[in-house]
Write a protein that binds this DNA or RNA. Structure first.
Lengths: 185, 185
DNA sequence: GTCTATATCAAGATAGAC
DNA sequence: GTCTATCTTGATATAGAC
């Protein structure tokens, strides 16, 4: 059997899983390599350092959210009610199946004090999330109100993900989405 | 000058500061010892392992909140409005001066998947927080409503602390306390 | 109670063979 | 692109002198 070529993306996906569950500092290059069926030295052919993997992991998730979720806010073929319902549905789809919660939220607490590049990327993600929500809320609220509501619901969502992962129950997390939808309907 | 005797509590306080800012796994016994003016070997005279320091740190904060904040819920000399105002004021006093946010929230994301003893302690802390808030809300809401509101506001507070530390602004964090008070007034 | 010294292990990272 | 092998550093933890 031919030796499998491991792609950058494959490594990122395994790294993301590990970072979410084990934490960033507690995940070693050997752990990541193991998950990819490699040994740690081989990872350095694809990435020059662990920090590069960390930063690319954050960008990978950020890009996913931009493409699949945040972009809903500027879809001209949807009503605002449709937008917010899809927004919540896709957000829930992601976090209900994301063992270990939100990578960006987790690393916000663990790493962002120590690594400014990580911190900037995490801030950009949460700002994009807030801007997207605020754009949808803008249909029914002033700009200021929309942004305040958006900030509140980004924070509430992150807190609810924390509790969902801690208690192993999605009940309260799901109420957050319902409340967000009720703000527009 | 006599050699200073370092107390268990002193070590815990330095460890807590470091865990909040640098993260748990990224804080070494040498870091903790440095902060105490010791060398790492000396720490083992007081604690048998890093995990013991971690768990004791969680309990130390949990105890502080029980004694100074959660206990307000059962004070018979205060009205419910007084209780909730003091509750918010003392919570704010703590988190507005806590560099690195909430230790229990941070370790919930970083460590709780890997260390079940940590996870149980963190759950106990958040449950105590919720129960205290629910007790105060109980004056105006049914038991079920009070607990749902309490869960929501614990989550929102944690999310708001995350954002406050990320963006360096307390503005949105402070709105959470105002909203909690408005639920009772 | 703190120190020096050390044991043991695992981390991130690199060099060069295949 | 992956491997073996190795370098260097720093981690947790322990033993024993002062």
């Amino acid at each position: 059997m031919a030796i499998k070529k491991t792609s950058r993306q494959e490594i990122l996906q395994e790294a993301i899983k590990l970072f979410k569950i084990r934490g960033y500092y507690n995940t070693s290059m050997a752990n990541i390599a193991d998950a990819c069926g490699l040994i740690k030295g081989s990872i350095y052919h694809h990435f020059k350092s662990k920090d590069e993997i960390g930063l690319e992991s954050l960008k990978y998730i950020h890009d996913y959210f931009c493409e699949h979720i945040f972009s809903l806010a500027v879809r001209s073929d949807l009503s605002n009610v449709q937008k917010i319902k899809l927004f919540v549905q896709k957000t829930d789809d992601y976090f209900l199946h994301s063992e270990g919660g939100c990578l960006l939220g987790n690393l916000a607490l663990e790493v962002s004090h120590e690594n400014l590049a990580f911190k900037e990327e995490i801030k950009a993600y949460f700002s994009a999330w807030e801007d997207a929500l605020a754009k949808i809320f803008g249909a029914k609220y002033t700009d200021k109100e929309a942004h305040e509501l958006a900030q509140e619901y980004v924070a509430l969502t992150q807190g609810a993900i924390m509790m969902m992962n801690l208690y192993g129950s999605s009940e309260n997390y799901l109420k957050v989405g319902e409340k967000i939808i009720s703000l527009i309907e």
